[in-house]
């Protein structure tokens, strides 16, 4: 088991009001699984992903990745853990402006003091179909190309888990499908563990395991019995 979330709860306080975005969620993901999380807007799926990736702090509960308790770590240690073991892909790509594709992709390694292997990076960019664009700035790329660059950056450090938040949300259906196929390929060929958030049922059908979340609770899980 690579991801284990236990009693995961996140309550947002806003003055006297409070909103429970995630309510006592328990979830396990096996190594090499491709899991999609679906739900309506505001159902808590993004909150779940952020907590699984150590981007936010839960009000209650715990998350372990490969046995390491994320929220027992100090902030800097959690950041280092994240850059080594977790890759992120966002709907809005979130490439660093001012850096070209190559620099964006190799940045997490550089932050760890590791010099990126040139052959490996070239191979990664080639496999994602953006080798020709390696020196382009983010603003010079199409949406699909930017998302591929973001996936490349997420994979550069060979993470144990890839978390994708609506990776096709900003793309047209054709490009979205291409990105989806790419993720599937990564999962099949590299046994990359992927947890993907989407509101698109068709795309969710392409994954081996589908979790439905509503009002902060898991209401269905095609892989039930393991969680």
């Amino acid at each position: 088991m690579i991801i284990k979330a236990k009693d995961l709860t996140r309550v947002y306080e806003n003055g006297a009001q409070s909103l429970c975005a995630l309510d006592s969620v328990n979830l396990s993901v096996e190594r090499g699984e491709f899991v999609s999380v679906v739900g309506t807007s505001g159902s808590g799926k993004s909150t779940l992903l952020h907590l699984l990736g150590g981007l936010d702090r839960p009000t209650r509960g715990s998350v372990a990745i490969d046995g390491a308790e994320l929220y027992a770590m100090k902030p800097d240690a959690l950041t280092v853990f994240r850059r080594r073991y977790i890759g992120f892909v966002f709907q809005s790509y979130n490439l660093i402006p001012g850096l070209n594709v190559w620099e964006n992709v190799t940045l997490p390694l550089g932050l760890d003091g590791i010099k990126a292997d040139r052959d490996e990076t070239e191979s990664l960019l080639s496999s994602l179909g953006i080798y020709d664009k390696r020196f382009s700035m983010p603003s010079e790329l199409s949406g699909g190309q930017q998302q591929r660059a973001a996936i490349a950056r997420a994979l550069a450090a060979k993470p144990h888990v890839l978390l994708a938040d609506e990776p096709t949300g900003n793309l047209d259906s054709k490009t979205g499908l291409e990105v989806m196929l790419l993720l599937g390929k990564l999962n099949e060929e590299l046994s990359q563990t992927i947890v993907m958030i989407t509101h698109n049922e068709e795309l969710a059908q392409m994954t081996a395991r589908r979790i439905r979340i509503e009002d902060g609770r898991i209401v269905s899980d095609s892989g039930e019995g393991r969680s």
Binding site: L55, P75, D76, T79, V80, R82, R83, R84, F88, N94, I96, P97, L107, P108, L111, D112, R153, A157
Partner: peptide, 15 residues
């Protein structure tokens, strides 16, 4: 936002 983003991809506060 950029700084936060750098944090997401693994830049520590010290960095």
């Amino acid at each position: 936002r950029t700084m936060g983003l750098l944090g997401v991809i693994g830049m520590t506060f010290r960095q």
